[in-house]
């Protein structure tokens, strides 16, 4: 217990001191994971809507596939993206390995299935409610999917947050494709892993507490936004 209390105290001290190094790491974590989340929303949400309202051969297989991909281990994603971005790999010429861009790509691959699968569930419920009305008005399935994405925008924040939570908390993928390079690709989770390796458990735990706090702040903001939106839009 005393170790945990000590870590929390240390976390408070680090934050209070406004440590520049820490701020840089937190900022990079947010930048990478928020970018990956945005990219995954752009890719995964239309895909989820398509799976919800579309009718095409293989749709059910795709739904099962995406549900399965939600459980993809980050290390596997990291390895996959590493092999793609490595100089010897198909995308090697872009020199993206060990850059934040590589980390964004890996996290995007990791969380797009999550966002797509959760979006599909939300849009399927919407589709049940709106299907007849939209078809009566003459909306094609594509158009209906777009309309429902917009209509469900506040419910979909949950999908985005789930993706962000997974992205910002994972270490396996960013460690491999980012390389945990000091000042370049070192994010909160890889720092925690490094401090654990050094046996500095209180510092590692303190960083973990800061990570949780950051995620909580973002979730609280999203929650308040959603409450407000539901009051306003009904």
């Amino acid at each position: 217990m005393s170790e945990i209390a000590q870590s929390l105290a240390l976390a408070g001290e680090l934050v209070a001191a406004g440590d520049a190094k820490l701020a840089e790491i937190v900022w990079l974590s947010l930048k990478v994971s928020l970018s990956a989340t945005a990219l995954s929303c752009v890719l995964g949400m239309p895909l989820g809507a398509l799976l919800a309202v579309g009718r095409f051969p293989g749709r059910h297989s795709l739904i099962v596939l995406f549900n399965g991909l939600m459980g993809l281990p980050p290390v596997v994603v990291g390895l996959l993206v590493y092999l793609l971005l490595s100089r010897a790999g198909p995308l090697g010429q872009f020199g993206l390995l060990f850059t934040p861009a590589a980390m964004i790509i890996a996290q995007t691959v990791l969380i797009t299935p999550i966002i797509a699968a959760l979006t599909r569930q939300v849009i399927e419920d919407e589709w049940r409610e709106y299907r007849e009305q939209l078809r009566s008005l003459g909306a094609s399935r594509m158009r209906a999917g777009r309309t429902l994405l917009w209509n469900a925008r506040f419910s979909l924040t949950t999908a985005g947050l789930a993706g962000f939570g997974r992205a910002v908390a994972e270490v396996g993928a960013v460690m491999i494709v980012g390389g945990n390079i000091d000042g370049v690709t070192r994010v909160m989770t890889t720092t925690i892993a490094l401090e654990t390796s050094k046996g500095d458990l209180p510092l590692a735990l303190a960083l973990g507490a800061i990570l949780v706090a950051v995620v909580l702040v973002i979730n609280t903001g999203a929650f308040i936004l959603r409450q407000w939106a539901e009051r306003r839009w009904g």
């Binding site: 928020l34 970018s35 945005a38 990219l39 929303c41 752009v42 850059t99 934040p100 861009a101 964004i104």
Partner: peptide, 19 residues
């Protein structure tokens, strides 16, 4: 959507620009 894409391009471009 356009806003998101723009934000993303900026976010991705920044580090490589600095590099």
């Amino acid at each position: 959507l356009r806003f998101l894409l723009t934000a993303l391009v900026v976010a991705m471009a920044q580090p490589s620009g600095a590099q």
